[in-house]
Computed example of a mutant assay.
Amino acid sequence: MARRTARWGAVVGLGAVWWWAVLRLALAPGAGVVEGAVAAGGWGLSLLPVHCVPKSRAAGALRQGRWRDAWRAGVRGERGGPVSE
């Protein structure tokens, strides 16, 4: 329970700092580099793909090398292999 509370406290605290920086950039004439860095850093973190899984575990993932195998199979068929009509 303490870990959960600490995690939520960190999330709320960092969110408050980010909003402070964004609002200061938008509304205060004296906003500077620190506010810009905090706002840009927080926005950049939101772009991270945190819900990704390795390709091998993804639902519907195809094995690696499938295009190469398909290409080679097509080339073999054109060079006189069995071709269905």
Rank of each mutant, 00 (worst) to 15 (best):
G30E: 15
W19H: 06
P49M: 01
W67I: 06
A59F: 07
G81A: 07
R68N: 08
A16T: 10
R7P: 03
L47H: 07
M1A: 14
G44D: 08
G74L: 15
A59I: 11
R4S: 15
A59T: 12
A39S: 01
G30K: 07
A28N: 07
D69N: 10
V38Y: 00
V38G: 01
A61R: 01
P49L: 03
R57E: 11
R3I: 06
R72S: 09
G44I: 10
A10M: 13
R57A: 13
C52Y: 15
G44M: 12
W43R: 04
V11N: 04
W8T: 06
L45Q: 02
R66K: 12
R24M: 03
L25A: 03
P54C: 01
A40Q: 02
P49F: 04
S84Q: 13
R24C: 03
R76N: 08
V34A: 12
W71V: 13
W19V: 15
G77I: 10
V53A: 13
C52V: 15
G42H: 00
S84W: 15
P49Q: 04
A10Q: 14
A21V: 00
R57T: 09
V17M: 10
R72G: 04
R3V: 09
A73S: 12
W18V: 05
A37S: 07
R68L: 15
L14Y: 09
V53R: 14
W67P: 00
E85V: 11
R79C: 06
G30A: 13
G41P: 01
L27F: 03
G74R: 14
V75H: 10
S84H: 12
G13Y: 00
R24D: 11
L62P: 08
V11W: 06
R76A: 15
P82K: 06
A58T: 05
G65H: 07
S46R: 04
W18K: 03
G36F: 03
R63M: 08
E85G: 14
W19P: 02
A59N: 08
V83K: 08
G74M: 13
R24W: 07
V50S: 11
